[in-house]
Write a protein that binds this DNA or RNA. Structure first.
Lengths: 152, 152
DNA sequence: TTATAGAGTTCAAAAATTGAACTAAATGGG
DNA sequence: CCCATTTAGTTCAATTTTTGAACTCTATAA
């Protein structure tokens, strides 16, 4: 997670990727979101990440407030729980999952169904108009950058 | 972009991250999406990535059909243009941008405004019900994994 | 109380990334 | 058409990351 280069572009995407854009961070976040509070060894076994790097990544995720060390009741052990900042990443990760399914190469890929908890109805990630909540076609999107010289 | 470990989880998120999850790939994609067809040196100067690694990443992105080498008219030079697979990543990247702005640490961060091209109206990335297009609260989302043993 | 599981730490080897210099083809100006 | 410059890379040593395996030091369980 080198902060060397694209950190300095004052771009929210570059900022996000400075925090999330390495090999493992988003997978750790996925694990934390989908499996709930998880412990060191659970992450390690589920991901196959090397243990010293996991130590480092968990520390960084805690430092940036994406995960939180929480005690496990009745023990002196602890787990890593997703914070609100982490839960706010769920839509990013699910948008990525939808992309991964649409453009899959592995035919055995798992299907992730996104449901509304209260009704069980299927849900997708889409562009919607802020004012009236109407769905907007992805090809009909334009991005305007404010406070900018010439770069993304 | 090591295909070593999390590739083998048949998870669409892991699949997506195997294609996108290194330091530079999503920044290259962002550049290609926001700035349109771009040339080698433009990527290099905008990102500050080392040239040999850029060569490698562009080759991988072309190989996986996210970018396409297109000739520039009236010259023998070429640029790298986003494909549909790349344009389908825009929602992922903009979801990430919204997260980056919400949780920004850099106060000088640029604001990205997402607009509907045809009307100029503001747009956000949201969960919506597939059936009736109604917006769903992010805290009211549940993910069900199909075809799965025990891992994400 | 003793064995085992959990949560790391240590450190050498391997892999990825950088940075700087080097090429060869394409283009532009005179 | 010729020469200088730009473009799009390539090469390679030095640095930085990541891995993998073994080790340590509590907790917990029997």
């Amino acid at each position: 997670m080198s902060t060397t280069n694209y950190q300095k572009h004052h771009c929210p995407i570059a900022q996000a990727l400075a925090e999330l854009g390495d090999q493992w961070t988003l997978l750790i976040v996925r694990d934390a979101l989908i499996a709930g509070p998880r412990r060191f060894n659970e992450f390690q076994e589920s991901l196959g990440i090397s243990r010293n790097l996991l130590t480092l990544r968990l520390a960084q995720l805690c430092a940036s407030g994406i995960l939180e060390r929480v005690p496990i009741t009745d023990t002196k052990r602890h787990a890593y729980a997703p914070t609100q900042k982490c839960r706010d990443l769920q839509i990013v990760i699910l948008a990525m999952a939808e992309w991964g399914e649409k453009w899959r190469t592995d035919p055995d890929i798992h299907h992730l169904e996104i449901l509304e908890k209260s009704t069980g109805r299927p849900v997708t990630v889409q562009y919607i108009q802020t004012e009236d909540g109407k769905i907007v076609d992805p090809d009909n999107i334009e991005v305007v950058r404010h406070g900018i010289s010439n770069e993304p």
